[in-house]
C-alpha cells in the first residue's frame, strides 16, 4: 500500500516545491507571484499609510516573533492561487445545490428524530476514532506536547468515556482536542497550497490539503476494521450527517451575507489554514490556569516541563 502511495507523495513534493514558501514569514514586498494568485493586489505595497513596519526594527528584535501579528496587518492579500476558478465555481455550484436540497434536509430530519446528547456522543465517538490522524501528525510535526495531549485524551475517553462516546478529557480535565492533519504537516514544513480546489461534496481544499486528506485516510481505523466499502461509505455519510446536524447554519449565513460566497469561503479557508499552520496565538496554559493551577490532571504541563 505504501508502495502505491510513495510515487504520489514524490509527485506532490515536486509540484509543491515550485511554489513552496513559508507563508506567514514571507515579507510583503517579495511575495512570490505563484503564491499571490488572482486574489491579491500583487507587488504594490498596500495602503501607503502610517503603519510602517520597518521603522521598528529594534523593537522587533527585542521581542522576536512577538510582533508578527502586528506586521501582517498591512501584508497584501496573497492567500491562495486559483488557476482553475471556473471549474472550482462549477463544483461549488453543485455542492451548493447538494447542500440545500439533499444534505441539509437529511440532517434536519435526523436532528428532529435524534436528541442532541446522542448526536454529541456520536460526534465524540468519531472524533475519538480519528485520534491516530491527529496524534500521528502531531508526531510528524514534532509537537510532542500535542502528541501527549492526544494520547492522553484517547486513553481517558476510550475508557472512562465509554469507548469515546463521552469526552471527560475535555469536560473533567479540561484537555481539549488539538486538530492536526497531513496537509497541515506539509504546511509546517514549508509547502504551499499549490492551488485552491473545491472538491465534490467535501468542499474547499487545495492540492496540498487534498493530498493530506488522502494520506490521512490511511490512518483511519475503519479502513482496517474489515468493513465492506459500501458500509465504509455509509459510516462516512452518517458521520457527516451527524456533524451537519450539530452545525448552526454556518453556510446559510455566508450565502445570505456575502457578496460572493465563493470568494468569501476561499479567503476564509486560506486564512484558517494559515492560522492552523502558524504558531498558536493562544497559549493553552493561560487558558487553563484559573481552573487547574496545579495542573496535575493536565498532561500538557508534564510535557512542557521537559520539552
Amino acid at each position: 500500500m505504501l508502495k502505491r502511495l510513495l510515487p504520489l507523495i514524490v509527485a506532490a513534493c515536486i509540484v509543491f516545491s515550485g511554489c513552496a514558501a513559508i507563508p506567514s514569514k514571507t515579507p510583503a514586498n517579495t511575495a512570490d507571484p505563484a503564491m499571490t494568485g488572482p486574489v491579491g493586489q500583487q507587488g504594490a505595497p498596500i495602503d501607503g499609510e502610517s503603519f510602517d513596519a520597518d521603522t521598528d526594527k529594534a523593537f522587533d528584535d527585542d521581542f522576536g516573533g512577538w510582533n508578527d501579528d502586528f506586521n501582517d496587518w498591512d501584508a497584501p492579500v496573497k492567500l491562495i492561487a486559483d488557476p482553475f476558478e471556473p471549474i472550482n465555481r462549477g463544483v461549488f455550484w453543485v455542492n451548493d445545490k447538494l447542500y440545500f436540497y439533499l444534505f441539509k434536509p437529511v440532517a434536519r430530519g435526523y436532528r428532529a428524530v435524534v436528541p442532541r446528547p446522542a448526536r454529541v456522543s456520536a460526534s465524540n465517538f468519531f472524533n475519538n476514532l480519528a485520534t491516530p490522524v491527529r496524534a500521528g501528525n502531531a508526531l510528524l510535526q514534532l509537537k510532542l506536547a500535542n502528541f501527549g495531549t492526544e494520547t492522553y485524551r484517547f486513553i481517558v475517553n476510550s475508557t472512562i468515556g465509554v469507548a469515546g462516546l463521552f469526552d471527560p478529557a475535555t469536560s473533567v480535565a479540561g484537555v481539549r482536542r488539538v486538530p492536526a492533519d497531513f496537509g497541515q504537516t506539509l504546511g509546517t514544513y514549508g509547502f504551499g497550497h499549490g492551488f485552491y480546489l473545491v472538491l465534490p461534496i467535501v468542499g474547499p481544499s487545495s492540492l496540498r490539503d487534498g493530498t493530506g486528506t488522502f494520506v490521512d485516510s490511511f490512518a483511519d481505523p475503519f479502513r482496517y476494521s474489515g468493513v465492506a466499502t459500501e458500509d465504509l461509505l455509509l459510516i462516512r455519510a452518517f458521520d457527516s450527517t451527524n456533524r451537519l446536524s450539530l452545525d448552526r447554519d454556518t453556510y446559510e449565513g455566508i450565502v445570505r451575507d456575502a457578496l460572493d460566497p465563493y470568494l468569501f469561503i476561499r479567503t476564509s479557508y486560506a486564512q484558517r489554514r494559515l492560522a492552523q499552520i502558524g504558531e498558536p496565538v493562544y497559549n493553552l496554559n493561560i487558558l487553563q490556569a484559573p481552573v487547574f493551577d496545579s495542573d496535575i490532571l493536565n498532561p500538557l504541563e508534564w510535557f512542557r516541563l521537559w520539552q
Binding site: P38, V39, G40, Q41, V77, L79, A258, L259, D260, L263, F264, R266, T267, S268, Q271
Partner: peptide, 8 residues
Amino acid sequence: NYRASYGE
C-alpha cells in the same frame, strides 16, 4: 475576508 472579495 472582505478585502479579498471586494478587491476581486
